[in-house]
């Protein structure tokens, strides 16, 4: 049984022999896509998201402040804030969180590119 297995292995290995081929590796390396485009999209996405955050913050500044004040006033009286006053802070938190994540990704990408510039040896 084992001998047959070994014979089968050997026959298949002989039949489908593949030699080491540096040219294949070189060709494949040349075809690997660059990750530079991703960084550009991250920067543009970051500018867009923070731009929207700023515009919304300026446009609805008084609404946000009023809502936060309502929420804190209710909380200080140990009452549950109602849905209407909670909605604006929750939306703000979500938008800020998304913008924060996006920035973190950009920062990570930036540090990677900095590290890439270090000498290898």
């Amino acid at each position: 049984m084992r001998t047959n297995d070994n014979e089968l292995k050997k026959s298949l290995a002989d039949l489908y022999r593949v030699e080491k081929d540096d040219a294949f590796v070189e060709r494949t390396l040349q075809r690997l896509p660059s990750r530079g485009a991703r960084r550009l999209w991250l920067i543009l996405g970051n500018i867009a998201i923070w731009g929207i955050v700023l515009l919304l913050a300026v446009r609805y500044f008084h609404v946000i402040v009023q809502s936060l004040a309502d929420v804190f006033a209710k909380l200080s009286l140990k009452q549950m804030p109602d849905c209407n006053s909670l909605a604006v802070p929750v939306i703000c938190a979500v938008v800020l969180f998304v913008a924060f994540l996006n920035s973190m990704e950009l920062l990570e990408d930036y540090y990677r590119s900095m590290l890439r510039r270090l000498p290898d040896d």
Binding site: E19, R112, L115, D120
Partner: peptide, 22 residues
Amino acid sequence: ALLGDKRAFGRLMQRYHQRVRR
């Protein structure tokens, strides 16, 4: 993975290309 270093990936390919091609 972290630095996007193609040379490091090239070394991985050197090690595995025969097996994948086979």
